[in-house]
Amino acid sequence: MVFLDIAIYVSLAFGIVRAVRMIQPQVRDTVTAFGFLEKALRKKFPDLPAGFTWREGVERARLLNLKVSWEEIQGALAQYERFRYGGGSKPEPAPAEVVKLARILSGGVRLGN
C-alpha cells in the first residue's frame, strides 16, 4: 500500500513538473515573438554564426520541413523588417506562426531563459 502511494505521488509530481515545463507564456508582442524566435534558432542551431540574419535563420529552419505555414512566416518577417529597418508601424498582434515555429524549435524552452 505504501509503495502504491509512493508510486502515485511520484508519477503525479513528475507529471506536474512536465506540465510546468510545457506551459508557454502567451506572446502578444511582435518584438517579443521575434526575440523568442532568435533564441529558439540559436538553441536549435548552435553553429549559427553571430552574424546571421533573419532570412538566413528562417531558411535554415525551413530545411527541417516543420509543420508551419512558411508563407505566413515570410509575410510576418517582411512586416517585421519593414517595422525594424524601414520605419513602418509595429505589426500587431504577434505573428502566431512565428511563435509556433519558435516553440517547435525550442522544444519547450520558456521565454526569459
Binding site: 552574424g51 540574419t53 533573419w54 532570412r55 538566413e56 523588417e81 519593414r82 529597418y85 524601414g86
Partner: peptide, 11 residues
Amino acid sequence: GRSFVVPDDVK
C-alpha cells in the same frame, strides 16, 4: 522591391 535596406542587402 523594398524601400529600405535589410542586413541581407549588406551581406
